[in-house]
Design a binder for these strands. Structure first.
Lengths: 235, 235
DNA sequence: GGTTTTTTGTCGTTTAGTCGACACTTCCTA
DNA sequence: TAGGAAGTGTCGACTAAACGACAAAAAACC
């Protein structure tokens, strides 16, 4: 469960929805201009055409806003990535991995250093949402009933957790390399290390030319705000 | 004086400013999709992520909103057009005329028919703001004092009014033609008809290659909203 | 023609956002 | 190192926006 540290307001109220949208948009704009550390709450509020007090009515501090924003993006993008595949397969797991790689790469490219706080936050969110999305997938899998009852074999929770860590770990290792190999070359290489534990749930891989695609047909920057996309496309 | 039919609210309040901006943006978006007649107040409010009641707290109806929007654009664009010229000259008057032509042309191109109400509204606003901007220019002209005191000669008000009508009339006549000649060809042709009455105030025309430019260096679509620009650039 | 259906305006009431002010921390520089 | 500037976080009083509901006008439909 995600604790998005929001104050007690009716999250259905259009004013609340609009205000959060304005704050998120403002943050994204500013992130295209300077490092997250250098951004102040006052700046965010001003850019959002909102009062500073209103910011605090919604988020504890700028870190809570960043988490709220990143979490939403990661979640919806991961879900969209899986939605493009009819069921769990090597392809869909590969798509997840490619998505995480591109996410890390883009974060590095768009957000001016220092990225102190962001690093840990992204790790936390990515693992969390990969876990949730995988768990959901496994629990709705045809093989779920038979697997879950067999004593001694790993639970779906365990399987999802280990796989989530494996996916993030792989992507992280790749992102840390000095001279990275291309994503399209890297991901198929490590894929077996990830899918091994999923074997009971996996459809055999299709032969279509799908593997190279990143984030299931969406460009890597789909997960970034408009201004970041803008900054990116001209960098 | 412009009667922008606004309800009694503090126009300085950031919430008010933001709300009006949202309404204007929503209207512009919708105008890129359908005719003004086909747009409802509910649609505008929904698109602006505002309650319908809030719309009525700011504008009497959709026509008041359109007037508010067009008026602001016409005014700022006209002002900017003149601001690019150091003082009143044939060039600046020519720029005004070219601006009005391009305004009429773009309105026709971007706004799906029928344009019943818009026609009259644009005429009213254009004439009004041309008058205001010209009057301001004449009153600050070095020759103002001597002219204004000479009995029997036209007042600056009279001069501004006649010139405003002449400029709009010329542009309108051009826009009504079945097969229009290019603006760059038309405007120099009629310019003498307009500047005749301004002779006492005018600097001689420069020889620079300025005449062709429209709206003082801005593209014609500078006066249109983002979505309209978008729709335009791909039409 | 008459009858649904949609859109328009306008009410109170409730809730979110703004404002000014305050005490506090942090950082910078004289 | 003292002190000024800038950022943070919170308070209570005021104002704008949301909501549901209503009647009445317009449009759409048969």
């Amino acid at each position: 469960m995600l604790i998005t540290q929001e104050k007690t307001k009716n999250p259905e109220d259009p004013r609340v929805v609009r205000t959060r949208r304005l704050l998120v948009d403002a943050l994204n704009e500013l992130m295209g201009e300077k490092s997250f550390d250098a951004i102040t709450v006052s700046e965010i509020a001003t850019r959002a055409t909102l009062n500073r007090v209103t910011f605090y009515a919604h988020f504890q501090d700028k870190y809570a806003l960043l988490e709220y924003d990143l979490s939403n993006r990661v979640q919806s993008q991961l879900q969209a990535t899986l939605d493009d595949h009819p069921q769990l397969s090597e392809d869909s797991v590969h798509a997840l991995l490619a998505f995480v790689c591109s996410f890390l790469e883009n974060a590095e490219r768009h957000c001016p250093p220092p990225r102190g706080q962001m690093q840990g936050l992204m790790e936390k969110l990515l693992k969390q949402h990969i876990y949730e999305v995988l768990l959901d997938e496994l629990q709705h899998h045809p093989a779920y009933k038979t697997k879950s009852n067999k004593a001694g074999s790993p639970s779906v929770q365990q399987t999802a957790m280990v796989t989530a860590w494996a996916i993030y770990g792989a992507a992280f290792q790749w992102s840390q390399q000095d001279k990275r190999q291309p994503v399209a070359q890297f991901t198929p290489e490590v894929l077996p290390l990830i899918t091994a534990n999923l074997a009971p749930y996996l459809e055999p891989r299709t032969n279509k030319a799908a593997p190279q695609r990143v984030a299931a047909g969406r460009g890597p920057s789909a997960l970034l705000g408009a201004s970041l996309r803008f900054a990116f496309s001209f960098s």
